[in-house]
Amino acid sequence: MPPKQYLKIARFQKAIETIENNQFIQWSGVAMDSGFYDQAHFINNFKEFSGFTPNEYIKRKASTLNYVPVN
C-alpha cells in the first residue's frame, strides 16, 4: 500500500473515531483534528471511503461502534 493511501485511511479512521466520541460535531474541527487541510478535502475523502457525506453518514450510522455504512 502506498504511503499516501495509508495516510488517507488513517485520517478517515481518525474522523470516524472523533465522530463516534462526540455528541456535538463541528465539521471543521473534525477535519482539522483528523489531519485534513480543509473541510472540502475532508468531505471528499470521507465520501470516497464511505460513499456518503459526513452529514449523510450521521443520519445512517448505527449505534454500533466502528460500524461504517457504505454506499
Rank of each mutant, 00 (worst) to 15 (best):
I9G: 00
T53A: 01
Q13L: 15
I43F: 07
R11E: 03
E17A: 12
K4H: 14
S63E: 14
Q23S: 00
V68F: 08
F42K: 02
A40S: 08
S34N: 03
N55Y: 10
E17T: 12
V30R: 02
N45K: 11
W27A: 04
K59H: 13
Q13W: 11
P3R: 09
I19E: 05
I58P: 07
F52R: 01
E20N: 01
T53I: 01
W27P: 04
T18E: 14
T18V: 10
A31D: 01
N45G: 11
Q26H: 05
F52V: 02
M32W: 00
Q5I: 15
V68H: 07
K8S: 15
G51T: 06
F24Q: 10
P69M: 06
L7C: 11
P3I: 06
V70C: 09
K59S: 14
W27Q: 07
F52I: 01
F24P: 00
A40I: 08
E20W: 03
Q13D: 13
M32Y: 03
A15P: 05
N21E: 14
N44D: 10
Q13R: 15
G35Y: 05
I25R: 05
F52L: 05
I25P: 05
E17C: 10
F42A: 03
D38P: 04
Q5N: 10
M1E: 11
D33K: 10
I25Y: 05
T53N: 02
S50P: 04
T18M: 13
K14Q: 13
E20A: 01
T64Y: 11
N22S: 12
G51E: 05
P3E: 11
I16S: 07
A10K: 15
K8L: 14
K8V: 08
S34P: 04
A10F: 11
